[in-house]
């Protein structure tokens, strides 16, 4: 029972990270109708920027987290402006290629600046405590609480502010939004800022627990895509639930069978769910 609870706890922690990263990805996909393949790399860069503020400049954890959020938010706006916006009226394949270009650029940038070896951020909350027979690291608990706070905050923003509602409006009907006087370019920029800033926050929370490496963005980006498909394309609740499902499946599979196969469980779950429900958990029929 302890092993089970311990794995579930770990699964929820990973799931929190997945949920946030997938949430950002699905927001941008809804707005631009193109997959931002570089999304996981923004997460990776968030981890390194946090490292820069904590490790290099010696700032505290919380100020570093806020600064990382701002830096990545601005980077998101920049990316929308110079990588994607010029391609708005071009064939989709161009944006695909641009996304891959952005991904390679970001990974190489991290490689040049910080090197290929893994880096570690000192854990600001190394304390553990016992609950129901399982060991809970304080930083791990913080990952979960941080994620829930962020998800709740985003929900309030999307449902109860006019700016948040315009994101949904543009995703549902781009031309309809324009004809209502909404500046769709600005909405795209705001969406990109939110998407990269939230990925960065997820990275800030998780990086004191795990090593940073330039390649970690690619793996997480891939998983975020699995989650988005799993949860149903463009569905925000789907991305959140999908994130937690994937985290728990991975942790249970890893704990009971073999940690070496944890990615196999993730992709296996994707195949099974898509066989049963091809549009994903919250997916709608194609319009």
């Amino acid at each position: 029972m302890e092993l089970f609870l311990q794995q579930v706890f770990n699964g929820i922690m990973f799931g929190s990270t997945y949920a946030i990263v997938a949430l950002g990805l699905t927001l941008v996909m809804g707005i631009l109708n193109i997959p931002n393949f570089a999304h996981g790399h923004l997460y990776m860069l968030g981890g390194y920027i946090t490292f820069f503020f904590i490790g290099t400049l010696g700032l505290g954890f919380w100020p570093s987290l806020v600064l990382t959020l701002i830096v990545l938010g601005l980077l998101g706006v920049l990316m929308e402006r110079i990588v994607y916006r010029p391609l708005t009226d071009q064939p989709h394949i161009n944006a695909f290629i641009a996304a891959i270009g952005a991904l390679i650029f970001l990974e190489s940038l991290a490689l040049v600046v910080w090197g290929p070896q893994g880096l570690r951020i000192p854990n600001p909350y190394p304390q553990n405590f016992e609950l129901l027979g399982i060991t809970i690291g304080l930083q791990r608990l913080l990952v979960i609480i941080g994620a829930i706070t962020l998800i709740f905050g985003l929900h309030v923003f999307m449902k109860h502010t006019i700016l948040g509602t315009t994101i949904e409006a543009v995703a549902q009907n781009r031309e309809g939004a324009m004809l209502n006087g909404i500046n769709v370019n600005r909405v795209s920029a705001v969406t990109f800022a939110i998407s990269s800033a939230t990925a960065a926050v997820a990275a800030s929370f998780l990086s004191p627990i795990f090593m940073l490496s330039p390649s970690m963005g690619a793996i997480l980006g891939m998983k975020a895509f699995i989650i988005v498909i799993l949860g149903g394309m463009g569905s925000i609740p789907g991305a959140i639930l999908g994130g937690y499902i994937l985290g728990v499946i991975e942790a249970l599979g890893g704990g009971y069978i073999s940690a070496a196969y944890k990615d196999v469980f993730a992709f296996g779950a994707l195949i099974i769910i898509l066989t049963v429900k091809p549009t994903g958990i919250f997916g709608k029929k194609e319009a």
Binding site: A169, G176, A177, L179, N180, G181
Partner: peptide
């Protein structure tokens, strides 16, 4: 639109997943 010239388009171009109230509020953007 800000200048006061508004098109009510063919095919309506509504926001299908949003409520009536929210569609109208977006019109007041």
């Amino acid at each position: 639109v800000e200048r006061g010239l508004v098109l009510c388009p063919q095919g309506r171009q509504l926001f299908p997943e949003l409520s009536v109230q929210k569609n109208l509020l977006l019109g007041a953007y």
